[in-house]
Design a protein around this nucleic acid. Structure first.
Lengths: 203, 203
DNA sequence: GCTGTAGGTCTACACCGTAGGTATACGCTC
DNA sequence: GAGCGTATACCTACGGTGTAGACCTACAGC
């Protein structure tokens, strides 16, 4: 009757689904166990701790993403990386924020960073410069995709403007009246590419 | 003997200090209450819920920051905004991540965004363009300052590279050997300014 | 002096991660 | 086949969390 033998993989998959559906807090050990029809503590035979489980969800997330992993020009890497992360945020909105709570590591992450570093080195940046470029891109896109994933910060600049005096914040009110949605990811992509191009030209 | 009457302000200040010292999870209601020599549920007379308390911490954080609030050229606004947020991350490392968990709102936040929007409008961007620029800057800097504040993601790209095969990730290994620290905030500032300049020129 | 109310306390609940001890079921060697 | 080590699941229990509801108590206004 025990449909499938409990395994790390099954646990991680379940946690990812739960997180996608109910947010990261919805992926408690007890809920995962319940979903799998198993006692809480049984999970500990496959996952040593909650943090390890979240790290596993990060792996799972990276595995599902289409990030650049082969040699490309630096600007293509930037576009591909941003697009890949944005896709993750779209498809795994609930689980996305785990990338901000746990370190992003493992072979899959390293592989993407490796080809990014190579691309910037080929473009003429030195080691530190390439590292700075990759790190900046990675962290900036994380921040920008937060709002795509997280309902709480979705209306980052819009919340509460209604209610504040129009006379004091005229432009903000104009914005809320005129703009309905802005594609931050598109803006970020362009800004990063243009900005890094200038940086490379100057090197 | 009851030194001072409990108040929202005193609670928020205490929560901020606790969060700074022990991280955001160190600011539990019980610990705040304990620090103030008061029963947990007494806090509820001044703060309706834990989320409201965190929102208050956001306020407190913004109040402590030196963000641009007067009319300046757009590039000065970007530099000032990034520097201000980076300073917050430096001085309130433990509490910083609250900006990623709760919406950033209130008059203080709106005031900064307002002058940013104005600056970009004066530079020639339309309403949506200005909004996109401000939003992108705000979110990108949030992501980049995370690593300055949060120990977990501090070594975002470096963790675990040792242990992965040198042959497969040669550049990553070179980086960990050569580079000790990169000022992501400085890189981000330059990239944003250069990238937005290109965007403005094209408009 | 009575009463309404604000602001404190106490108890209790449901949830969380996880440590320690126990039972069962498998694959191995004799 | 008998014995046994190991892996995996279970149970109980602890200390932590946010919060709801009943209670008490001191003070202000009539």
């Amino acid at each position: 009757m025990t449909s499938a033998p409990l395994s790390r993989e099954r646990i991680l998959q379940c946690a990812l689904q739960l997180a996608d559906r109910d947010g990261l807090d919805g992926a408690s050990l007890r809920k995962v166990a319940g979903e799998l029809g198993v006692h809480v503590t049984s999970l500990y035979n496959h996952v040593p701790t909650k943090e390890a489980l979240l790290d596993g969800v990060v792996e799972e997330l990276l595995a599902s993403a289409d990030l650049p992993r082969v040699e490309v020009p630096w600007d293509a890497w930037v576009r591909g990386f941003v697009a890949g992360v944005a896709q993750m945020a779209r498809e795994h909105g609930g689980a996305f924020e785990v990338l901000l709570r746990r370190p992003v590591q493992g072979p899959r992450a390293t592989a993407t960073f490796e080809v990014g570093l190579e691309a910037f080195r080929r473009a003429g940046l030195d080691v530190a410069g390439s590292y700075g470029a990759v790190k900046t891109v990675a962290l900036a896109v994380l921040g920008c995709c937060l709002e795509q994933a997280n309902a709480a910060s979705a209306d980052l600049l819009q919340t509460d403007v209604r209610g504040l005096p129009t006379t004091e914040f005229p432009v903000m009110h104009e914005v809320t009246a005129v703009v309905d949605v802005v594609d931050v990811v598109a803006v970020l992509t362009d800004v990063l590419v243009a900005g890094l191009a200038a940086r490379i030209a100057r090197s």
